[in-house]
Amino acid sequence: MENYTYNSPTLQLEWLNVSKDSMYPLFLFLLFSYVFIIVANVGIALIVFIDKTLHQPMYFLYWNLSVSDIIGNSAVVPRLLIDMWRPPSERIINYYECVAQAFTIHMFGTTAHTVLMIMAFDRYVAICNPLRYTTIMTNKMLIKLTVSAWGAGFVLVGILLGLTIRLNRCRTLMRSIYCNNAALFKLSCESVFINNVYGLTFTVVLFTGSIGSMVLTYTKITVICLTSKNKSLNSKALKTCSTHLVVYMILLLCGMIIIVLHRFPQLAESRKMVALLFNVIPGSLNPIIYGMQSKEIRRFLSKVFNLKKVFPS
Rank of each mutant, 00 (worst) to 15 (best):
I288D: 00
K303W: 08
G72Q: 01
N73V: 15
N139Y: 10
S294P: 01
K231W: 01
N41A: 10
G158A: 07
S232P: 03
T217P: 00
A237I: 02
S284R: 01
K303M: 09
E269R: 11
L65Q: 08
P265L: 02
V260I: 12
F29N: 12
F36V: 02
Y133A: 13
T240F: 06
N196G: 03
K52F: 12
Q266L: 08
L206W: 04
A45V: 02
S68L: 11
F32A: 11
V157A: 00
H244K: 08
W15T: 14
L31R: 14
R79E: 05
A45R: 07
V99F: 06
T208P: 02
L261I: 02
T110W: 01
I70E: 02
N64I: 09
L216Q: 04
P57N: 08
N279A: 06
Y178W: 03
P312A: 05
L173M: 14
T201H: 08
L28I: 13
A112P: 00
S33F: 10
N139M: 04
I82R: 11
V39I: 15
V246M: 06
V18K: 15
L251R: 10
Y6Q: 00
R298N: 05
L116W: 01
T203L: 10
L206T: 14
L26I: 14
A112I: 14
N41P: 04
T5V: 14
M214W: 11
P130I: 07
S19H: 09
C98Y: 06
A268H: 14
L11K: 11
T134I: 02
I281A: 03
L251I: 15
S74A: 15
E2S: 10
V42K: 13
T203M: 11
